[in-house]
């Protein structure tokens, strides 16, 4: 557990009127959503709807054109140590010469800062994280020798080793087998029981209702957000997946052609 008890009430992430332009093309229009602390939240939407973009904006990996984002009521820079990130599996070089344990230990690097070496305690934390995803027996394997599900577990273990309060995950269930999916879900539930917040980009509509308790539905703009029982309705699903609003697309294209999306003053 982290030294300071994580805020289990209130707002974990507040996205306020955020517009994000990627290669100058706006991919998110005025998204305004608050993820409650202690929730297990899904971000759903069709391909190219801006799901990963929203996640990366929260992490400060993409510049936002307008609006602001707060994590636990503060700018990200002040609370970075409270945030863990699980990128998409395809984003890294799996041929890189590191072992499973090396990757998990990377989760401790954030709190170490530059130049400092991982201590005994950091190594123990990494081992514990590895154990909790059931990957201890693969500890010294080279990462390219893992299956897709095992790679995903390693990424999850790295996030656990970060011992964060907020977990942002980009498609944690993508391309994993059923057994891995269940064990990842168990880990996410445990995190929630410990009072932590999980926000995951999710693509399997069948499982949204049973896995998550909060949902944000995106399609270039926020269609709906709220507790799963109310927000994840057939009507909202139709509005999210029932084709783009052609006018929204046209305006998006017009703004792109118009040059740059100017930053707000």
């Amino acid at each position: 557990m982290p030294a300071d008890t994580p805020p289990t009430t209130g707002i974990a992430v507040e996205v306020h009127d955020v517009t994000v332009a990627y290669h100058r093309k706006p991919v998110l229009w005025d998204v305004d959503v608050s993820f409650p602390a202690g929730s297990l939240a899904a971000i759903v939407g069709p391909n190219g709807a801006g799901k990963s973009t929203l996640l990366k904006s929260i992490l400060g990996l993409l510049p936002i054109a307008s609006g602001r984002i707060e994590v636990f009521g503060k700018p990200l820079a002040q609370v970075r140590d409270l945030v863990a990130y699980v990128p998409q599996r395809e984003s890294v070089d799996w041929e890189f010469p590191v072992s499973v344990f090396d990757v998990v230990l990377m989760g401790r690097f954030g709190r170490l800062g530059w130049f400092r070496r991982p201590s005994r305690a950091d190594r123990d934390a990494a081992d514990a994280a590895l154990h909790s995803v059931g990957m201890t027996e693969f500890r010294d394997r080279q990462i390219s020798q893992l299956s897709g599900g095992q790679q995903q577990r390693v990424f999850l273990a790295r996030a656990l080793a970060q011992d964060a309060t907020l977990y942002l995950m980009d498609e944690p269930f993508a391309g994993v087998d059923a057994a891995t999916e269940q064990s990842i879900l168990e880990v996410l539930r445990t995190l929630q029981q410990q009072g932590r917040t999980v926000i995951a980009v999710h693509h399997d509509l069948q499982t949204v209702r049973s896995y998550f308790d909060f949902v944000a539905m995106l399609n270039l703009h926020l269609v709906a957000a709220g507790p799963i029982e109310t927000a994840f309705s057939a009507d909202n699903l139709k509005r999210t997946y029932g084709g783009r609003l052609t006018l929204l697309d046209e305006v998006t294209e017009a703004v792109r052609r118009g040059g740059t999306l100017p930053r707000s003053p």
Binding site: D30, S66, V223, L245
Partner: peptide, 15 residues
């Protein structure tokens, strides 16, 4: 069409 609250749309329209 997007169901945004009226007090949130000014910035987007402004651009």
């Amino acid at each position: 069409r997007l169901g945004l609250p009226p007090d949130h749309v000014h910035a987007a329209a402004h651009k």
